[in-house]
Write a protein that binds this DNA or RNA. Sequence first.
DNA 1: CTGTTAGCGCATTCAA
DNA 2: TTGAATGCGCTAACAG
Lengths: 339, 339
Amino acid sequence: MATGRDVAKLAGTSTAVVSYVFNNGPRNVSAETRAKVLAAAEKLNYHPNALARALSFGRTASVGLIVPDIANPFFGELARALEDAAISRGDLLLIGDSALDVDREAQIVAAFVERRVDSVVMVSLHEHPDFSAFTRAGIPIVALHPVDAASPASSVTIDYDAASRAAAEHMIGHGYETIALLNGPSESVGAGHHRRGFAAAVAAGVAAGGASIRTTEVNSATSRADAATMALDWLVTPDRPRAVICATDEQAYGVLHAAHRLGLRVPQDLAVMGFDGTEHSAYAVPALSTVRQPIPLIAERAVGLLRDAESGPVHEVLGHELELRESCGCHDEAGSAHR
Amino acid sequence: MATGRDVAKLAGTSTAVVSYVFNNGPRNVSAETRAKVLAAAEKLNYHPNALARALSFGRTASVGLIVPDIANPFFGELARALEDAAISRGDLLLIGDSALDVDREAQIVAAFVERRVDSVVMVSLHEHPDFSAFTRAGIPIVALHPVDAASPASSVTIDYDAASRAAAEHMIGHGYETIALLNGPSESVGAGHHRRGFAAAVAAGVAAGGASIRTTEVNSATSRADAATMALDWLVTPDRPRAVICATDEQAYGVLHAAHRLGLRVPQDLAVMGFDGTEHSAYAVPALSTVRQPIPLIAERAVGLLRDAESGPVHEVLGHELELRESCGCHDEAGSAHR
DNA sequence: CTGTTAGCGCATTCAA
DNA sequence: TTGAATGCGCTAACAG
């Protein structure tokens, strides 16, 4: 690869001028020499070495993203949105997939620190993540899930408790009397929020004098495969619930599949509610009712916080939205009337 | 961040020794000083600066991956598999999402070149990609789709023509007499392969004296949203086909959704075949019959080619597999008998 | 407006 | 076995 020196030599100038040209500063360059430099660079296929530049400049123009599972479309959409935001700032987004493996997560954290990413956006596998590797390196970090008050990380999230509660209240409003929460692994990051939101909705329903509701919590990994396997056993029993509220869309897809295999009609025999609200949820069979997280907004705010990150951790809470479609029993897009 | 000099100072040695310790060479270090260096590094939270190291060493220990759409689970799974392969080599995988946008693709290519990734794995948006930015920089590249014979890139693919043909032959074997190909955009990268494979199967069927088959090709973007929208209009007409073969699973999901909305039963009223075979296809409603690409193998071979990439472009063709489930009419996992 | 030069942090050759 | 010194490619302060 050609270096700045090669370009300078060919253009008959110094390396400083080459630098000035490619950075539009900090010194001015005459139009004539600028043209010569550009021509030489073109001819030599010169691309400034970002490593050397970063080493000198003290900034890598890159932000790291760590997600638990890049094969989950929710994180795919998130990565997409963050890349949009990063690129429009002139940064490169480095995506790391921890693949639901804590060792892998640690490896990626280390790799990002060593590569001196300017900042990090992270969805950790841990309930109480250890951000010290980043903070000790002076790398600002935004978590996309709630963090401890004492944590050095900023966060951008929706109000999970409220969102879960809204989902549950909606199902209660449908009049379903046996409702199950299909939660993530019971000690997983978000499980407590879904549990609390669900319980709050039930308590409020009872207080309001509604019919008594039987509830249960079951668990599966956050994947459609696990949820389907689990649901295939679970929903075959005669005391299966009338409605299922899932902690993620992925799990909801698994339930939808299991219901189909078992010959259960959704929503007539089993109502299903998801959580996350990726674009895919609209194209499920049947269309999945879900709680939509505002992914583009989350991405935008996350990089926004990174930009002016000097002022200590900030915690932003964004709004969620109930996306009501067919699977919960609201709309009927498939023909036969119900509800 | 602490530097090697800080560590050397605290350990009472020179920076050279620090380097020797962290690289296990090229010189030996006495156990005693080694311990002192390690202790000092630990205390200072020393992480070697990968940029400086790369600048000096001439190697960044990173491989770039460019995919058209990271929100498509096929590419998510691919990224996952490639990250596995890269990490086991001690490399970091940089994932770039071109988001189906050729300008974005060009930006990522430039960013990877400037960051001097050691090699690139790419699924281009172009039918005839221009790899010159990489080749002129001496960066070896593996495409995961067929490339021109004159191309400097290696490739790892399945035989798309044969795979498409196998899918079509299977549907013909079911006895469906009106079969449509839901292809990608007609000038898109893989459209020609699917078209040829489909045509070959039909011709072979006719030659074998089978019943005459009416065929059509329709097109949509490679997304379930587009496919669903398109199918909603298309399948409502009385002359809709009995079977649809899709160029991607994403499009098949869109068809499944549209069929549901239109009250068409799959496979009784409409048989559907996908293509790609990600894990998700097994959990569709109904389970999707599809052509499975061997993603882990593709990933492994891709980084394998990168390792010993000095010997000019290599083209590997891997095997595909027909994954027969419910949507094509083969299995019935949902109760009522048919076929 | 432009050239010279000193780092940025690390790896490594050459001396010791 | 260890230390001093040089270079990787680029930026920016310092001199012209």
